[in-house]
Design a protein around this nucleic acid. Sequence first.
DNA 1: ACAAAATGTAAAGTAAACTATACATTATGT
DNA 2: ACATAATGTATAGTTTACTTTACATTTTGT
Lengths: 73, 73
Amino acid sequence: MAKNELTNRIRRLRFDNGEMTQQQLADRVGVTRQTIIAIEAGKYAPSLPLAFKIARAFGKPIENIFKYEDESA
Amino acid sequence: MAKNELTNRIRRLRFDNGEMTQQQLADRVGVTRQTIIAIEAGKYAPSLPLAFKIARAFGKPIENIFKYEDESA
DNA sequence: ACAAAATGTAAAGTAAACTATACATTATGT
DNA sequence: ACATAATGTATAGTTTACTTTACATTTTGT
């Protein structure tokens, strides 16, 4: 799994949404803060259900928050 | 992880895309056929990168292929 | 300056997402 | 009818996605 191809703008969106903290987002989507940190930093990719929850928390489509560059190019 | 809240229409899209087989889709997105079977059947949810690849294989947004119902309602 | 909050790092444990392999059943084409 | 292809089920192993806990560092507000 080429997780270094997956990028996101979660930190940007947290800031834009009332300067939400990592803990607040974590509480909102039902995961630990560590998970948010890891995903923000690209340490690992979220599962799809979690991606949905994050997208829902920001009111945006998944593809607006996460970008995936195909490495097979 | 409430994976029973995640549904998909992969089988439908396979049919509509030249009656693609599970193996062809698997080859296309770079996973085993078992993975496709499991995801189609809702056995487990895909990771986000894989969801991106599947979406790209069908030329549709992720949210058009997968539906996630929030269970906190 | 100082306390509290927010963020960052690490590590070990658990569960889920996959892989590989094998066999069975069903569907398809001739 | 028969061979092949497609699908389905099972299982064990590996890797990744998370959780928990702890501590460190930085930032923020007064």
